[in-house]
Design a protein around this nucleic acid. Sequence first.
DNA 1: CGGGTTGCGTTAGTCGCACTAACGATGTAC
DNA 2: GTACATCGTTAGTGCGACTAACGCAACCCG
Lengths: 168, 168
Amino acid sequence: MTRRAEAADMPHHGEIKTPDRLRRRASRLLSQMSAQSDRLINEGLAQADAHKWHYAVLASLQEHGPGSQATLSRRAGIYRSDMVGVLNELAERGLVGRAPDPDDRRRNVITITAQGRRHLRRLDKVLDDLHDQLLAPLAPAERDQFVQLLTRLLDHHTQQAPRPPRIP
Amino acid sequence: MTRRAEAADMPHHGEIKTPDRLRRRASRLLSQMSAQSDRLINEGLAQADAHKWHYAVLASLQEHGPGSQATLSRRAGIYRSDMVGVLNELAERGLVGRAPDPDDRRRNVITITAQGRRHLRRLDKVLDDLHDQLLAPLAPAERDQFVQLLTRLLDHHTQQAPRPPRIP
DNA sequence: CGGGTTGCGTTAGTCGCACTAACGATGTAC
DNA sequence: GTACATCGTTAGTGCGACTAACGCAACCCG
């Protein structure tokens, strides 16, 4: 209070770097957009009685073939502790088979069933639609670029970086 | 088992749409990248004894001047319920002032202090560094484009969309 | 052979963040 | 003056990411 008047609370013009720096911070944009995306996707998948993780597991099975739970866990980026429940749900609905591996009795071998493949096709459609909503404001070329930028960033921070854990 | 051999689990070539569709889904990229970003930022800010929300509040105060808690809440995208704790922490450290509004006795008027401004300057530097790490693999022009794409997406999903809540 | 390390599936639980519900106190509109 | 909205605050939910510890099976190496 002793120093001059209290005009000090208003933006300091003459010292401007970025007006609106809050809204432009990539970290904020990422977390807010991720929340928005999560909401959209979860709602959409819920209407198909599904879950993000179901899709991830089924898609990874379809693309890389059967595998142990730990393998799937790494492929799909889901922790083994969470994988248990996901596979329970998928197995209950007959979308995957879970059988002990005769060659290594610690493992379960997970395979996708015909019904699972059918379900995956449905989910793929649902997700195509949802991503169309998600990326609505971007032109096709921009969508590709967006995905490409994100991919490069993610690769940088997962693969070679000594950043914290990545499905340990 | 009764139907031919079990080659049915491998990827169906001849039906390929996108190989690797899991990894290319924007929703997945967003959530994974957001997690990575959160980790990086939180760690960095923790070393400065700070928090994402502290920065958001201080920056919004600096840019738009003082305001009630509810106003700040809307400006910074933080729920009123969370704002209470954030302001307690900031006030404890003498970074903001919190005084009852004489014109409307429901409100508290929050102002940034000189010390708060100093702290904000520090945080801005820290965040600049962290974002440099975050966006390391992108060239300057690409960083701008990334931010611009994210901004457009976020605007679309917050402003005009009847999507769920945005600080109600 | 035997003993240590490593990987497996499972259970339980933590932490942080977005978000809701409800409260008393105050202000606004009709 | 009565109904309704808004404010700050407390408490609590739900979910996703993540950790710890378990018993078991397999592998390594001396």
